[in-house]
Computed example of a mutant assay.
Amino acid sequence: MDLYFEITGNGHPVVLIHSGGTDLRLWTFLAPLLSKKYKVIAFDGRGAGKSPSPLKDTNYVEDVLTLMDYLELKQATIIGHSMGGQIATDFALNYPERVSKLVLLAPSLTGFPYSKEFEEYHIKISDAAPNIDKMLELALDSPNYQVVIDSPQKALNVQMLRHHFGRMLKWPADFSIKWPQPSAKERLEELNPETLFILGNKDLADNYRVSNCFRKVSNIHFIEIQDADHMLPLTHSEDLYQEITAFMED
């Protein structure tokens, strides 16, 4: 196992999958709360934090399976944020027997057609490379960060983004993510684990469109967090803790 991970607490295992542009520090405030009741496993995805850079073709879903096998976890509650939620969804679709419950925090979705505005936003950031300061300026100019940018957690958010851009510039030029096929969007109605879907009421319109895809699945409980943008694990950890523990103990 070459991925960096940290384990805190005891009890039922909970695996935390961070979003793109962050690392396990995303869970700085939520993990200590969850570890009061559960065994919490937070890890840096390949190419993030203290984990090694990705290979040409990287399979983040298989990385979760490898981590769970290494830790001898037959089953765990999986919690994923944004791209981490995308990974968690694909993992639950392909390895449902390994997921006791699924918690998706503003997830992205494999196979989802994102808007032109969303795609142009990411292209502008990429085109600014290797100027990390400019990349940061462009990245933070988004509704994704409208709440966190005015919060005490702004510095941590910026630190993670800066670190991510620095790491990303060293990735293989032909790097690509290998996702399971068919796409999760095409298979959502096969999603078996009981699922909690949480979204901030100030998140992007695209993420609300993603949530509409998940509403076709019968065993999903939806919650909207007030005054939260995309980075709700940083700004609304107490709210998330209350909702997640109530869901897990139900």
Rank of each mutant, 00 (worst) to 15 (best):
residue 52 P to R: 02
residue 218 S to K: 15
residue 214 F to Y: 15
residue 38 Y to E: 02
residue 197 F to C: 04
residue 95 Y to D: 01
residue 73 L to A: 11
residue 224 E to G: 02
residue 186 E to S: 13
residue 22 T to R: 11
residue 100 S to A: 13
residue 197 F to R: 05
residue 58 T to N: 10
residue 88 A to M: 12
residue 193 P to M: 05
residue 59 N to H: 08
residue 106 A to W: 01
residue 237 S to T: 02
residue 125 I to Q: 01
residue 65 L to M: 06
residue 138 L to P: 12
residue 58 T to C: 14
residue 163 H to L: 08
residue 167 R to H: 13
residue 187 R to Q: 14
residue 22 T to D: 08
residue 199 L to N: 00
residue 99 V to H: 01
residue 229 D to E: 03
residue 65 L to I: 08
residue 235 T to G: 01
residue 125 I to D: 00
residue 169 L to E: 04
residue 177 I to T: 12
residue 58 T to I: 14
residue 18 H to V: 03
residue 117 E to C: 01
residue 23 D to C: 10
residue 170 K to H: 13
residue 93 L to H: 04
residue 125 I to W: 01
residue 141 D to E: 12
residue 18 H to K: 02
residue 50 K to M: 12
residue 16 L to Y: 07
residue 37 K to G: 08
residue 168 M to T: 10
residue 131 N to F: 07
residue 41 I to D: 07
residue 13 P to C: 03
residue 144 N to Y: 10
residue 163 H to V: 02
residue 9 G to C: 03
residue 101 K to L: 04
residue 199 L to M: 05
residue 29 F to D: 12
residue 161 L to M: 13
residue 210 V to I: 15
residue 185 K to L: 07
residue 124 K to N: 15
residue 68 M to D: 11
residue 246 A to P: 06
residue 244 I to V: 10
residue 174 D to T: 15
residue 6 E to I: 04
residue 148 V to Q: 05
residue 155 A to R: 13
residue 77 T to P: 01
residue 26 L to Q: 15
residue 70 Y to L: 06
residue 147 V to D: 06
residue 45 G to C: 12
residue 139 A to T: 15
residue 173 A to Y: 08
residue 163 H to A: 08
residue 230 H to T: 00
residue 48 A to C: 07
residue 107 P to I: 11
residue 49 G to M: 06
residue 182 P to Q: 04
residue 237 S to I: 02
residue 150 D to P: 00
residue 226 Q to H: 14
residue 141 D to H: 11
residue 227 D to F: 00
residue 227 D to R: 00
residue 44 D to H: 09
residue 249 E to N: 11
residue 148 V to D: 04
residue 103 V to S: 01
residue 94 N to P: 05
residue 116 K to Q: 15
residue 124 K to R: 15
residue 160 M to N: 03
residue 120 E to L: 03
residue 38 Y to W: 04
residue 161 L to V: 08
residue 133 D to W: 03
residue 14 V to I: 14
residue 191 L to N: 00
residue 4 Y to E: 14
residue 90 D to V: 03
residue 217 V to A: 04
residue 42 A to C: 15
residue 190 E to H: 02
residue 68 M to T: 07
residue 1 M to V: 12
residue 65 L to N: 10
residue 66 T to S: 14
residue 127 D to P: 05
residue 71 L to P: 05
residue 224 E to Q: 05
residue 52 P to V: 00
residue 153 Q to P: 09
residue 46 R to I: 13
residue 87 I to E: 07
residue 67 L to E: 09
residue 41 I to R: 06
residue 79 I to H: 07
residue 215 R to G: 00
residue 207 N to E: 08
residue 114 Y to A: 02
residue 75 Q to M: 11
residue 188 L to Q: 06
residue 228 A to N: 03
residue 213 C to Q: 15
residue 138 L to S: 11
residue 147 V to K: 04
residue 171 W to P: 13
residue 176 S to G: 06
residue 9 G to Y: 02
residue 48 A to M: 08
residue 115 S to I: 07
residue 208 Y to L: 13
residue 51 S to Y: 10
residue 248 M to Y: 09
residue 194 E to Y: 02
